[in-house]
Simulated scan of single mutants.
Amino acid sequence: MEKKKKIVQHRPKSFYIKKYLTILVGAIIAAIGLELFLIPNEVIDGGVVGISIMMSSITGMSLGIFLVLLNLPFLYLGYKQIGKNFAIATLIAICLLSLWSFVFGSFPKVTDDPFLAAIFGGIVDGLGVGLIIRAGGSLDGTEIVAIIMDKKSVFSVGEVVMFINLFILSAAGLLYGWDKAMYSLVAYFVISKMIDVVIKGLDESYAVMIVTNEHEEITSALNDRLGRGVTLLHGAGGYTGESKEVLYCVVTRLEVDKLKEIVLEKDESAFVTINVVHDIVGGRFKKKAIH
């Protein structure tokens, strides 16, 4: 009996250069958000970063030390449960954030207004964290716990992270005062939204499924008027058994309304479902203008 050969995927050097340059840039941006906006105004992020900020404030020790020490157990979990590449990328991201936090720690803060610090610090920090996540790493051990618990419990990643952060923000209220805890909650909300923008992109794409009896006309119209390719799937009604053609197409956010207009113009009884696409790999999909 022949043994199955293990397939080893060799990525080009350019892939790793781009990956770790993105992590470097993300760590610099995140450190700016923390050290020039959030930390000087006693506004914290969630997760291990938030705990590290509070520990640094209590002990007077460098933030970078706590970022590395508190994340070590989670890194081990990530290595065991998620994979080596993720653990390496996360370790590098944490070390870089610790380094740049030390560098920017001596810089003067940008604003004394905690609300402005929460908003703009959240935007800057979220941008940096989003770049790191997009490159395959992480800055926060609680996310690793959430990913593992998502596989072994009924709770989603978002629910686990929010549950953990409720305790962390409550601790911030006891340490800095409840007004600062509320500013921290605002910052956490802005950071999470900014991460979504970076990961998903400003111009989201949508997958569209169209069940219709006028598939030829709709396909032709989508090709001609939107410049979009269409995949034809053969199906049947579950109740009637009648043959149905299902069209599959990917469009940008700006093209969704135009697509619905085209479909209903050709077939008023068409059934259309539209879902957000978080990423597209391969194919010939490109952002195009509506015409």
Rank of each mutant, 00 (worst) to 15 (best):
M1A: 02
K5L: 07
K5N: 03
K6I: 05
K6T: 05
I7A: 14
I7W: 05
V8Y: 04
V8Q: 10
R11Q: 13
S14F: 07
Y16H: 10
Y16T: 10
K19Q: 15
K19V: 01
T22P: 09
I23Y: 09
L24V: 10
V25Q: 12
V25W: 12
I29Q: 11
G33I: 02
L34K: 08
L36Y: 12
F37D: 08
L38H: 09
N41F: 00
E42I: 05
D45E: 14
I51R: 00
S52D: 08
M55F: 11
S56T: 10
S56F: 12
S57T: 11
M61V: 03
L63V: 14
F66C: 08
L67I: 11
L69K: 01
L72F: 11
L72V: 13
P73L: 11
Y76E: 08
Y79I: 02
I82E: 00
G83P: 03
A87P: 00
A87N: 02
A89Q: 01
T90K: 00
T90N: 01
I94V: 11
L97E: 07
F102L: 10
K109R: 15
V110W: 13
V110G: 14
T111M: 07
P114Q: 14
F115M: 15
F115L: 15
F115H: 08
F115W: 11
L116K: 09
F120W: 14
F120A: 09
G121R: 07
I123S: 06
G126W: 01
L127Y: 09
G130Q: 07
I133C: 02
R134S: 12
R134N: 09
A135I: 10
S138Y: 00
I144M: 06
A146E: 04
I147G: 00
I147M: 06
S153H: 14
S156W: 13
S156M: 13
V157Y: 13
V157R: 13
G158W: 07
L169V: 13
S170F: 15
G173H: 05
G173N: 07
L174G: 02
L175E: 04
G177N: 03
K180F: 08
A181C: 07
M182R: 04
M182E: 02
Y183L: 06
S184T: 07
L185P: 06
F189E: 03
S192Y: 01
K193M: 05
M194T: 13
D196H: 03
V198L: 04
E204A: 07
Y206K: 14
M209L: 14
T212F: 14
E214F: 11
H215N: 15
E217K: 15
T219D: 07
T219P: 02
S220E: 15
T231M: 01
L232M: 08
L233A: 13
L233I: 12
G235Q: 02
G237H: 06
Y239D: 07
Y239G: 08
E242L: 15
K244F: 13
E245H: 14
E245G: 15
Y248G: 12
V250N: 03
R253M: 05
E255L: 06
E255Y: 06
D257Y: 08
I262H: 04
I262F: 10
V263Q: 08
A270V: 11
F271M: 11
V272K: 11
V272W: 10
T273Q: 12
I274Q: 05
N275I: 03
V276F: 03
D279T: 07
G283E: 02
R284M: 01
K287H: 06
K287N: 09
A289H: 12
I290W: 12
